[in-house]
């Protein structure tokens, strides 16, 4: 991993020539984390730009986590949960879907690119889907460029 949030990437210092987006993924224990695990054991290749944080359920996401990540140096946030109807806790992903939608609408409302926050349903058997989603998100963020909030200290 070339750049992590713990490395100094201060304002004014030149960025590496090719922009490598930093992604944090909040994934649920029962589906998307298992999918990421499966991608690993099946040796499916995907970009190393993602840091995975395991939560028990996508419904456990507090939008504060997402906002902190976006102001704290990440370029994108991926939230992964079970497909609708498959939540281990019955309804956690439905609640996550409302919360993330509200957050995205707020971000749009204040002029921020809400496409930096992704909510995706990836089941435990979809290791390939997890890898594909990460690749797709890296490509999308590369075209969007670095997160403006990373080096703007007035935040």
């Amino acid at each position: 991993m070339e750049a992590t949030v713990n490395e100094k990437t201060p304002a004014g210092r030149s960025e590496p020539e090719t922009f490598e987006p930093r992604i944090i993924a909040f994934v649920c224990n029962w589906c998307t984390y298992a999918a990421a695990d499966l991608a690993g054991t099946a040796r499916i290749q995907y970009p190393p730009n993602v840091k995975i944080v395991r939560l028990m359920c996508s419904g456990a996401i507090d939008p504060i986590y997402v906002l902190r990540a976006l102001t704290g140096g990440f370029d994108g946030v991926l939230i992964g949960g079970c497909h609708p109807g498959d939540c281990h806790y019955q309804t956690g992903n439905y609640k996550a879907r409302r919360r993330v939608t509200i957050l995205q609408k707020i971000l749009e409302g204040v002029g921020y690119d809400s496409e930096r926050v992704w909510l995706r349903w990836i089941s435990a058997s979809e290791g390939g889907q997890f890898a594909a989603t990460v690749s797709e998100m890296v490509e999308s963020l590369k075209s969007r460029g670095p997160n403006v909030l990373t080096h703007n200290w007035n935040k």
């Binding site: 713990n6 100094k8 201060p10 304002a11 140096g73 990373t150 200290w153």
Partner: peptide, 8 residues
């Protein structure tokens, strides 16, 4: 401050 060089 170390990470971002400046913190508001």
């Amino acid at each position: 401050a170390d990470q971002f060089c400046v913190v508001k």
